[in-house]
Amino acid sequence: MNIALFDLDHTLIPLDSDYEWGQFLVRIGAVDGEAFSRRNAAFYAQYEAGTLDPVEYLEFALGTLAAFPRRQLDAWHEQFMAEVIRPGIRQSALDLVRRHQDAGDEVVIITATNRFVTAPIAAALGVRHLIAAQPEETPEGEITGKLIGIPTSGSGKVVHLNDWLAAQGKSLSGFARSYFYSDSQNDIPLLSAVTDPVATNPNALLRAHASAQGWPILSLFE
């Protein structure tokens, strides 16, 4: 069996779901528009430059979620999916996922964005397995604002993937071929760990690295 791993934002969808969720909260008036947009934009610029502190960002993102009841968050997320995410899903991305599924590959989305934001998106893409930043929840399902474990970004993706596989009695080396599709230089640790790294809609830094390494470059959204 092979395994096909996918980053989410700017890889399978042509936007950053975490950033867009924040902008959605601004548009509906759930958060202070000026202050939130300023912080959200600053964090996004840091992510693009590869300088983001993932713990600092997740404390900001999860703290925002913790300010609202889960029932309200879920209702807003349904609106977010209808207005922002589903219109952005491209057939080219769905076809790529389906090719791996039809081949019998294990298909997994692994993303630095938190599970609250990304679980419905993974479902909309038809992907059952999701590794994402895990918010702590109360027994009633309310989000506390704390992160469980380490962030699922950079080398943390490798750690989380290995832990996820180990829980099933598997390892990355146990697959005949392992694919990872990503757009960002932040994912070079995991791209370097698989047999088939694919720079997908890559930013400039990853494109340069992929070219130097001889990795294939895939454009899904052109």
Rank of each mutant, 00 (worst) to 15 (best):
M1A: 14
M1E: 09
N2F: 08
I3F: 03
L8F: 05
L8T: 01
D9R: 01
D9T: 11
P14N: 10
L15N: 03
D18S: 15
E20K: 05
W21V: 00
G22A: 13
G22D: 01
G22K: 04
Q23E: 13
Q23Y: 11
V26L: 06
I28F: 06
I28C: 14
G29M: 10
G29K: 10
A30E: 04
D32F: 04
G33S: 15
A35H: 13
S37R: 15
S37A: 15
R38Y: 09
R39N: 09
Y47G: 01
A49P: 07
A49L: 10
A49C: 08
G50W: 05
T51V: 14
L52E: 02
D53A: 08
P54N: 01
P54Y: 01
P54E: 01
P54R: 00
E56F: 05
Y57D: 07
F60L: 08
A61Q: 05
A61P: 02
L62P: 03
L62E: 03
L62K: 03
L65A: 10
L65K: 04
A67G: 08
R71T: 12
D74T: 14
F80I: 06
F80M: 07
V84Q: 09
V84R: 11
I85L: 05
P87E: 11
G88I: 00
Q91Y: 07
A93F: 08
A93H: 04
L94T: 10
L94G: 11
D95N: 12
R98V: 12
D102R: 08
D102L: 14
D105K: 01
V107D: 00
V108R: 02
V108M: 07
I109Y: 02
I110F: 02
T111R: 01
T111F: 05
F116D: 01
V117Q: 03
T118A: 03
T118V: 14
A123F: 05
V127K: 00
V127T: 12
Q134S: 13
Q134R: 13
P135H: 12
E137M: 12
E137H: 14
T138F: 10
G141A: 08
E142V: 12
G145Q: 07
L147D: 00
I148Y: 05
G149H: 08
G149W: 10
G149C: 09
S153L: 11
S155T: 13
S155M: 11
G156E: 05
V158C: 12
N162Y: 09
D163Q: 14
L165P: 01
L165T: 09
L165E: 03
L165A: 07
K170E: 14
K170A: 11
S171C: 11
F175G: 02
Y179C: 07
S182H: 08
S182K: 04
N186A: 15
D187F: 01
I188K: 04
I188Y: 03
I188C: 00
P189Y: 06
L191C: 06
S192K: 14
A193K: 05
V194T: 04
P197H: 06
P197M: 04
A199P: 05
N203Y: 09
A204Y: 07
L206K: 02
A208R: 15
A208M: 11
H209Y: 14
H209A: 11
H209Q: 13
S211M: 09
G214F: 12
P216D: 12
I217Y: 03
I217Q: 09
L218H: 09
L220M: 10
F221S: 07
